[in-house]
């Protein structure tokens, strides 16, 4: 695992920890028990949610891990997404899609039904300022 991959895994672990300290997200995600694939520059990361908690963060590649939906992007885009005030387009996962820096695959309706939860969970790694996901 190179330094960047370690940083990404640590960021997802940080999200996992912060989620445990964010009661309103646990409430919003109480019906969400799915595995989500985050693909960054072709590297796979599987985030498994159980009733609003992240129970595992596993690096791929894996051909046997089923996932509900996937967000595919690149490292630079994700770094910008996690800034306190991202540039236009990098401020939202659908922004990444719109500017051609992200793709969402799989059961998109599952994502949309849990959209506020998922976006705010991903935003937990955002640099601190008074900024919502």
């Amino acid at each position: 695992m190179n330094a960047w991959e370690t940083k990404v895994i640590n960021t997802f672990k940080q999200i996992q920890t912060r989620l445990e300290a964010t009661p309103h997200l646990q409430r919003l995600g109480r019906l969400f028990s799915e595995t989500v694939l985050i693909e960054i520059d072709g590297n796979e990361y599987y985030l498994t949610f159980e009733k609003g908690h992240i129970v595992s963060v596993v690096e791929g590649p894996s051909r046997k891990t089923p996932w509900r939906f996937a967000l595919r992007t690149d490292a630079e885009a994700l770094d910008k997404f996690w800034q306190a005030r991202p540039e236009p387009g990098f401020h939202d996962i659908f922004g990444l899609v719109k500017i051609g820096r992200g793709r969402i695959d799989g059961d998109i309706l599952s994502l949309v039904k849990n959209l506020r939860f998922f976006k705010e969970v991903l935003g937990l790694a955002r640099a601190k300022e008074e900024v919502a996901a």
Binding site: A84, R85, H91, D92, G95, V112, R116, V131
Partner: peptide
């Protein structure tokens, strides 16, 4: 599913990160 909650979550993509949190919500 609740259309209002999903709609709000979708259109939040169109709100600037410079918006004050209270007015965003």
């Amino acid at each position: 599913a609740h259309g209002g909650e999903m709609g709000a979550a979708l259109v939040s993509a169109n709100i600037s990160p410079y918006a004050p949190a209270s007015e965003r919500w």
